[in-house]
Design a protein around this nucleic acid. Structure first.
Lengths: 198, 198, 198, 198
DNA sequence: GATGAATGAGTGTTCATTCAT
DNA sequence: AATGAATGAACACTCATTCAT
């Protein structure tokens, strides 16, 4: 009796959801939560604003979901480097390149906006504050320790090294995110000097 | 019945203007142009929101003026290091500390917001894009060249070095500006490794 | 391949229509025309909201039709008491119980909402206003006259007696309709004191 | 320095508040909380809708406040009859007339809507459910007991008598509230027969 | 100069209704 | 006939800006 079978329906829904998500990441990343109008997302996704609300209950919910996804994605990226071949410093080089790679930027922008904007549910901010940097440090600690023992990485408190290094990367992503120009993304080799032993 | 003479009135005007400017920098820097409500600035300045409009025609005008001032101020800071004693790298160290110093942050945040926000007249954005980084490079070029010749600074295209270095500093200011935590400001010595010869 | 013959289709149509009508009465009676969403009716009827529009052109049309039906039904109930045995006051007692009986309430609520809501076409309101009470008075007039002559009913203008009595009953239905509590449905004997000679 | 002194300001505020309250009661009473648009209240009060929000945070808050006020007012009306001269039944007659008087109707409509509508904060519904009828019964109990002892009021559980009687009055107000006609407000003497000993 | 009441354009969200399948 | 994705008009609420005092 059903005019569209279960599967077709499911497919449409998934397509639309993805359309919306892609559009939303793009707009949110550029403009933040306050600067983003639902109508912008709808326009970017090529649908009516009403349809957004078939898929997401509210702007807040949509943003929150994206941030959570972004955090999972960031952590996965962080973890994945252990599977890579090479010495610690080479792994860090690979990670650095992946982070600064254009495709990853929107996720970091999302997290940045989540941290600094107003309209974000307190719940999300706490989630980010607690999770974020500490979780990343946790992940990278073994790698940096190895690097220090191997003499590839400068001495000093490894937690501080990691958080400093990640802060630099985050900052670069934020200022570079909008292609609006002016800033320059340093070469990876330059960035590695922050932590690499000469 | 004439309660205030010309001069006193003038003085009040200037005082009020300054109050507003200080308050506006503070709020704009933290929240950006969209996230800032005129009422917030008024509250921060301790005046009524109506009075704002005696001094500035609009939110946009106020923001624009602050950005322009900030750019002048940043350039002055840049220039002033030539008056400092010490080797090139020591001057850069001093500049770095000044930039990252809390008091300077709002100006950079303003410029950052001007670059990335919507409500800003295109005219201002262009002004910033073209002026900003190039002007800074111009200023610092002699210093970096000296450093390279003295063997204190790594080889390579000095313009790229400068813009990379300033991009890192800008990024750090942006992610650190809100005291919201998570990020860590690296030590100056660590940052200097980006450009200093070992 | 012709899976259903004319008659079966017709039967389905009628069944669906009835499902919708029953559901709509229930929801409209409780929540009024504004408070009722088409999706509520669809859910109550166990069908999709899209299907509603195969059977009724609009919410307004559906509501209007129900009200008209309700008025016919109410008038029939009014008339039927003449077939009952017993003295006038006993007939009125029976009518009172039937009206206040839970099953009859939705119809009166519908009429009440039709009278007081906005979305209802003015045409329907007028219909109700003119028809409603006067038609009922017409129907009951012989009964009340008989009762007065038999000394069972208090003296006075019978039209006024009837409309007052019916107003009391209507009011009680309205305030009791939602089981939300607080109000109490008086005993029939108490209500009859409004018109019965002691 | 202040352009309008404290007192003038206060007066304006009070005037506006009252304007709004009067307008809101009128519109809410007629159309309920869902059927009432803020723009209707603004129009009725002769102000812009924006100004409503200088005085009340939200539609819900406005409605809630009115209901609370109405309940206080209703209780005061209830209590005041003890100050009246006359026998119990005469006091009840006076109360009945006051309740049914046109000026009191909006308050009861408000309470009615609060009880039956959807958009009402659960908090208010509970407040009403618990308070409302029981509080009224409490107030009137001594009076009805006196009346029964004096032989003016019929025998039977006085709480039930009171709640039945008040339910009848409430119902009449609801069906009569909109001047839309059809219904008839019974004479006080007729209503008193519900409880008065012949 | 100073205040805050007042306005209205703009944004998030809901829901009746349409339509491809 | 039946479904649910899709649209857009309507409404609550916010906030930059104006203006009487």
């Amino acid at each position: 009796m059903a005019p569209l079978n279960e599967e077709q329906l499911h497919q449409i829904r998934d397509e639309r959801r993805d359309q919306i998500i892609v559009a939303a990441i793009k707009v949110f990343a550029r403009r933040g939560i306050i600067g983003t109008k639902m109508s912008m997302i709808a326009a970017e996704a090529g649908i009516s604003h009403g349809l957004l609300y078939h898929y997401f209950t509210s702007k807040e919910e949509l943003f929150t979901m994206l941030v959570e996804d972004a955090m999972v994605g960031a952590e996965e990226a962080m973890s994945s480097i252990y599977d890579l071949p090479g010495s610690p410093i080479e792994k860090i080089r690979a990670l650095t390149m992946e982070i600064l790679d254009e495709s990853g930027t929107p996720y970091f922008m999302l997290i940045h906006h989540a941290r600094t904007s107003e309209g974000v549910p307190e719940k999300v901010k706490e989630l980010i504050d607690q999770n974020d940097m500490d979780a990343f440090i946790e992940r990278l600690l073994p790698l940096f320790r190895d690097g220090q023992q191997a003499g590839e990485i400068v001495d000093g408190n490894p937690e501080e090294l990691i958080s400093s290094y990640l802060s630099v990367l985050s900052g670069l992503m934020v200022v570079n995110a909008q292609g609006i120009g002016g800033y320059r993304l340093p070469e990876v080799d330059m960035l590695l000097r922050l932590i690499a032993r000469p």
